[in-house]
């Protein structure tokens, strides 16, 4: 079981690094927002996995609130780029 968690965390960390490279490189603001969205989703999944590892039910609430905040952030930035804000 421990090995499964290690493999999953390895893939997720590599994914986080790739998304962070796009976040730094991204030629336009939109690319950065897409990378931020991906980082948020991987972060939510990672927090749920860590909730299982540390056996804390309360971490699920943290991940849910993080997901809501990331969603609202992306929507607000998109409306701002559109010129409607």
């Amino acid at each position: 079981m421990v090995y499964i968690l290690f493999i999953a965390l390895f893939f997720m960390v590599v994914g986080l690094i790739f998304a962070a490279i796009r976040f730094i490189k991204g030629p336009t603001a939109g690319d950065r927002v897409v990378a931020l969205d991906t980082l948020t989703t991987i972060g939510v999944a990672g927090m749920v996995l860590l909730a299982y590892v540390f056996e804390r039910f309360i971490y699920l609430d943290v991940s849910l609130v993080y997901g809501v905040l990331g969603f609202i952030g992306v929507i607000v930035i998109a409306r701002y780029l559109e010129g409607a804000l």
Binding site: I7, F11, M12, V14, F18, A35, T38, A45, L49
Partner: peptide, 15 residues
């Protein structure tokens, strides 16, 4: 869990 993490990795590779 393994499938999910592989798809998350492929998503950021796509980005």
């Amino acid at each position: 869990i393994i499938t999910g993490s592989i798809f998350l990795f492929l998503g950021s590779l796509g980005i």
